[in-house]
Write a protein that binds this DNA or RNA. Structure first.
Lengths: 95, 95
DNA sequence: TAAATAAGTTTATATTATAAACCAAAATAA
DNA sequence: TTATTTTGGTTTATAATATAAACTTATTTA
């Protein structure tokens, strides 16, 4: 009946949504890859990834690629559910 | 090619999006109607309607219904275009 | 006539999104 | 070798935003 269900504020953010949109279709993605694809600044991306991580929507793994730091992100089951639910809710607003 | 086009910040807001979602499918709507449908507080709604009005996404008409004030809102052509474009851009994020 | 309700607006606050500034290590240039 | 630039980020500062609380004015209702 097309009520306006609340939109998860964690996902209702351009950059975080873009990140989740990428992560939902790959096994994992590197920080630099996400930065390129989303055309965001490193600072902004870092902050938003932290928020997704704290919400347990993604897992962040820090390691090294050769000698350089490597931050890798992957979506969690909780993240997948949240994303799918967000998309469902959003449909009521845009159709 | 599914790039992440920027999402109009004026529309990327739960309440304003809900309002536009209603207005796009009716000729006009009263303040109290929008308030009920969106389950928002009057204060919040008032502020958000002002923003949509200033952006010329909607027109606000103030009159009287009997003796009580009546605020009526209607979407503009500019609003329709903005909404449709927002929805198109958003699809890249959620599909 | 006092109290409650209606229909909003204004103002205050807490949260956010964002980029600027910063940092450490590695690679490159001089 | 030493200086400079680049990489891969994090931390911090700021400006904008969403939201509700407080307020206003007029109208009913008790």
């Amino acid at each position: 009946m097309s009520a306006f269900k609340p939109l998860d504020p964690l996902l209702h953010s351009q950059l975080r949504l873009a990140v989740m949109s990428i992560l939902i279709s790959v096994e994992s993605a590197e920080f630099t890859f996400l930065k390129e694809k989303t055309e965001s600044t490193a600072g902004n991306l870092s902050v938003q990834l932290d928020k997704l991580d704290k919400a347990e929507y993604i897992n962040i793994t820090k390691s090294f690629k050769g000698k350089r730091p490597l931050t890798t992100c992957a979506i969690t089951q909780k993240g997948i559910r949240a994303f799918e639910s967000y998309v469902e809710n959003l449909k009521n607003y845009i159709t």
